[in-house]
Nucleic acid binder design. Structure first.
Lengths: 264, 264
DNA sequence: ACCTGAACACCGTTCAAGT
DNA sequence: ACCTGAACACCGTTCAAGT
């Protein structure tokens, strides 16, 4: 089922404000114990990451970037924070709930410029490129986004600002919303291809090695049964993702533009 | 990492042929024991699904359709076949390997028509619609396809025949391959949105209920901070997927067509 | 060649109990 | 209000052993 991942709109802002404010009076704050004092050696929680909803989300993102989606477990996150897995459940409810928060956190990385009505198509292109870059930084995000309708505070803010750009360009209501939704999912589809489930080691983006292997295999097929594949094998090899992404943008944005001017 | 999911091209054909051939002499084949005879009651494997690579794949697909991706476990498959999980590993190597086979199996549902050079753009549209329908039948396939470069026998056959259509239409080599790859991933992106991780109960496709809930929530936002969202809330509600898919096809195919005629 | 049971090293989540 | 350890019901996979 679809889950509408909502957060109270004020939540994040409030938290951010609290964080920005000067730290609370640290009167009896952490003082390191004298070196001779023997403390009960429970894991000695590293308090630079105090356990809180925000800290859990940030730890999860760091872990995801470093180890990939398969390696993310509640136990691993808790370990990183110096606690047990059970402790996380008070803050995030479930792993699924945590991933909702993680997704909104990542959406927060998008910076949407103020509308410049004259060049809205180029602004749309820039947004798409930025979306791609975020997916390359966080290769796990496409998979995480499956089945989540982004409605957290950052998602709402993002949508609002993108729609402002389209509306300022005179795109009619229906086309603006449809086009916005299609743009997101089209880029996601592209990224589905480009990043796959790349492991952290890999430099993100389809490893050239894999592309070459595939192309080589295609070239080796029996010509009589796969004439087109064999003939086009070299094309599969030199499929530069940047180039292909720009082609996709060209097709997509010019399509929206021509429909927008036809309707107004 | 990307896995190139390859099967020897001849494998499936050979297996199919073997299956089609008359069954081996069933001289001392299974005769049901007399009703009074007490047999050791091990699970009494239902032999209508003999355990084999093909049977495992088919069982997996049936289970996936019925219960969704999260519910698929090696134990569940084995249970359905009347064995233990360990027995599957002789046939499929790993769950991941099984999913490779499952993906190729599903790709095999695509029927690609022979090229009709005059109407290749419409043929491309039809292929995309068919891809969508398969994703609606098997809502888990988009997620399964992440990180898999489809190179099984059915995938190769599919690619070959699609490329034949594009080439017959006079699409230049590079654009044919790029366009083919982009079409697949664009439809996948759309399906990522449309099916999410729909559970088996749901009628496949974004539940109208969820769309309404989202739209209602958007309409309830503070107007001063989300003027565009609030104004466009109704558009979010009546986003008919069929309509949006056709818009996407229009944009995409017309983009390919105009570039094809510009280059030739 | 094929199948099996039992074990290993994990999961997400719950819950009574602690402070 | 927040955290904890221990337990529950699962996972995928391995492996020695069976036929």
């Amino acid at each position: 089922m679809f889950k509408v991942s909502t957060e109270p709109v004020t939540g994040a802002k409030a938290a951010a404000a609290a964080e920005a404010a000067p730290a609370a009076p640290a009167a009896s704050a952490a003082v390191p114990p004298p070196p001779w004092q023997r403390l009960p050696d429970r894991p000695a929680r590293r308090r630079r990451d105090p356990i809180s909803r925000e800290a859990i989300v940030e730890t999860a993102v760091r872990l995801l970037d470093a180890e990939g989606l398969d390696a993310l477990s509640m136990r691993a996150i808790a370990d990183e924070l110096g606690t047990g897995a059970a402790s996380l459940y008070w803050h995030v409810g479930s792993k699924d709930g945590l991933l909702d928060l993680v997704m909104d956190h990542v959406i927060g990385e998008q910076e949407v410029p103020d509308p410049e009505p004259g060049r809205w198509p180029e602004q749309v292109r820039e947004l798409a490129r930025q979306q791609r870059e975020i997916c390359l930084r966080h290769t796990w995000i496409v998979e995480v986004s499956i089945g989540r309708i982004p409605m957290g505070p950052n998602a709402l803010n993002f949508s609002e600002r993108v729609l402002a750009i389209l509306k300022s360009g005179g795109v009619p209501d229906t086309l603006a919303v449809q086009g916005y939704l299609l743009m997101i999912s089209t880029v996601n589809g592209f990224m589905l291809d480009e990043v796959g489930d790349a492991q952290p080691g890999a430099p993100a983006g389809v490893p050239q090695e894999a592309a070459d292997m595939a192309s080589q295999y295609v070239a080796s097929l029996p010509t009589d049964r796969f004439p087109n594949m064999v003939a086009l094998a070299p094309e599969f090899a030199r499929a530069d993702p940047d180039e292909r992404f720009e082609l996709l943008l060209d097709i997509f944005v010019s399509g929206i533009v021509s429909r927008a001017s036809a309707q107004s």
